[in-house]
Design a protein around this nucleic acid. Structure first.
Length: 511
RNA sequence: GGCCCGUUCGUCUAGGGGUUAGGACGCCAGGUUUUCAUCCUGGUAGCAGGGGUUCAAAUCCCCUACGGGCUACCA
């Protein structure tokens, strides 16, 4: 391998919609590999298919990478000397390079109509054969190999649409890809077809633009999804045709659907109850919104951590990684070969791990920034709530679902009331409130002391008073320390909740 | 159909000739806790099948099955 300072990798998405989590993982592995080896992480936008271009997609990609903390060193969204980094702005470069391939005989112009080829394919299929545009068929087609230069010129003058195809070697040979995750992969050129390099609209196909750009941008390692493995030999041949040294390849395993068959697709998300996108996406054409990990309350480091372990492991038992830790640990040699089924449960677990390792101040700040409109808690209040709730939630957003934190309960858990309300419960609560009322400092520790003294005095157990107290304050049977919570809402609110709660109990009992 | 890649608990994975096949998620049980949760302890469950090679195979080879990808003037 070359010196590590020469490492240059790229993430090269198409702006055809929101990036999905598989794409984010590819970006993550590229980023990590670059950082690990002191190299550069580039972002190139592959927008050569004008039919599938979606406005806003490029901004989405940038924002998603940014949210994940994957800082781009060079390319779109950064700067660099080897641009432009958007393929739609590189057409002159492709024109020049396709010219040199035509001259050297590695490429030729073809005029065949799509329908003709389709018909050929169909009839071959009917006979159980496969038809493809290759060394065995191209001499029967309409192209610059079979037509005279005059015929070609007149076709061009007539404006007959033409593409430029790669000319696979007539003499079959094996192409070997030495893949960094899969080892040697061998394919015979016999089964490869003459792929279109330049489309009739004058724009390059993926294969051509990708190879030209990777070379011109001095990419050292191509790290991409396994769906590209079958075309890697074509790419290798293209490098050869240009007389260029090919980068190293690493084809990543695919992320599969949690249930059912196939790779995870953009449509799998919302019906499966989990996001497939890092950020929420509103389709500009249909207005349909797809949920995102960010909006679902995931911490970016939890999201990338989950992705990191989907197809890679450190070789020891560590599972929780911050991005900076991952940079130290990551390398391509521990990337797994087989596809990984995505598991939403584990994603949630990663979020819990990262959430609980966050400093309380940071959580408080988060809560402060995301609190419902009209609440207006100060930082201290957010801090108190963070302290009470952090270990009880998987996502920070769940804090706001516990409405009793900031609203008097409108109803109480009926089953609990039925089970827990004894003949003397109301009277015990009244006695407790008398003690609490007398408290000068209404803080958690004082409340606890008074509470315990009261129990002692009355000779009753914790459960007979604390649970009813909890139900009156929150309406529920579980939650944080009621001493801390009572202190949090204050003496007056505690008194009011108890009073209101008791009348709720009464009306429930009289039903 | 053709070509390529893959296959260890339900899921993510470790393990690459000799292991009681390890960990994590999930699930179950117990402990801690005023409750819930956290946390701790334990349990559950796996080498796709068949042939070889070998004293010895989850591990190497072959076949089959299954899964996945590609097979566009999409990436």
């Amino acid at each position: 391998m070359s010196a590590s300072s020469d490492v240059r990798v790229r993430f090269a998405p198409s702006p055809t919609g929101p990036l999905h989590m598989g794409g984010v993982r590819t970006a993550l592995y590229n980023y990590l590999f670059a950082r690990r080896h002191g190299g550069k992480f580039l972002l190139r936008i592959e927008d050569t298919d004008q039919k599938r271009f979606v406005p806003g997609a490029e901004d989405y990609i940038l924002e998603a990478l940014n949210w994940c903390g994957l800082k781009v060193d060079e390319g779109v969204g950064a700067s660099g000397d080897l641009g432009p980094y958007r393929q739609s702005e590189r057409t002159a470069i492709y024109a020049q390079h396709i010219g040199s391939l035509m001259e050297s005989g590695w490429a030729y112009k073809a005029f065949d109509a799509a329908e003709e080829m389709e018909a050929l394919r169909k009839s071959a299929e009917a006979e159980g054969r496969v038809w493809q545009y290759d060394a065995s068929t191209r001499m029967g087609m309409r192209n610059s190999l079979t037509l005279s230069p005059q015929e070609v010129a007149s076709l061009e003058a007539e404006g007959v649409p033409a593409v430029i195809r790669f000319r696979m070697p007539e003499e079959p040979r094996d192409v070997v890809i030495d893949d960094l995750v899969r080892g040697k992969v061998q394919i015979s050129t016999r089964v490869l077809d003459d792929k279109v390099l330049m489309k009739a609209d004058g724009l390059p196909t993926y294969h051509f633009a990708n190879v030209v750009d990777d070379h011109l941008m001095a990419i050292s390692h191509v790290i991409r999804g396994e769906e590209w493995l079958p075309s890697a030999p074509l790419h290798a041949l293209l490098y050869e045709a240009f007389g260029w040294t090919a980068p190293r390849f690493a084809h990543l395993p695919l992320i599969l659907k949690p249930t059912g068959n196939g790779k995870l697709s953009k449509r799998d998300g919302d019906q499966g109850g989990f996001p497939v996108f890092p950020l929420e996406w509103k389709d500009p054409a249909t207005g349909h919104a797809s949920s995102g990990y960010r909006e679902s309350g995931y911490l970016p480091e939890a999201f990338t951590n989950m992705l990191l372990l989907l197809g890679w492991n450190p070789g020891n038992e560590q599972e929780v990684f911050r991005l900076a830790d991952a940079v130290e640990a990551f390398d391509l040699d521990r990337v797994v070969k087989s596809g990984a089924r995505f598991n939403p449960d584990k994603a949630k677990w990663f979020n819990e791990q990262h959430l609980r390792s966050l400093p309380l101040d940071a959580v408080a700040a988060q809560l402060h920034a995301t609190q419902p409109t009209g609440l207006n808690w100060d930082l201290q209040a957010c801090h108190d709530v963070a302290d009470m709730m952090l270990e009880r939630v998987s996502f920070l957003s769940e804090v706001w679902e516990a409405r009793w934190l900031f609203e008097r309960p409108k109803s109480l858990d009926a089953k609990l009331v039925r089970k827990r309300w004894k003949a003397d419960t109301d009277e015990l609560i009244d006695g407790l409130m008398e003690q609490l009322d007398a408290l000068e400092s209404f803080d958690s520790a004082s409340i606890e002391t008074a509470f315990k003294a009261y129990l002692e005095d009355r000779g009753v157990g914790f459960g007979s008073v604390l649970l009813p107290f909890r139900i009156l304050l929150t309406g529920e049977g579980g939650g944080p320390s009621m001493f801390a919570f009572a202190a949090f809402i204050g003496k007056e609110e505690t008194r009011q909740r108890v009073t209101a709660g008791k009348s709720l109990v009464q009306s429930m009992q009289s039903e």
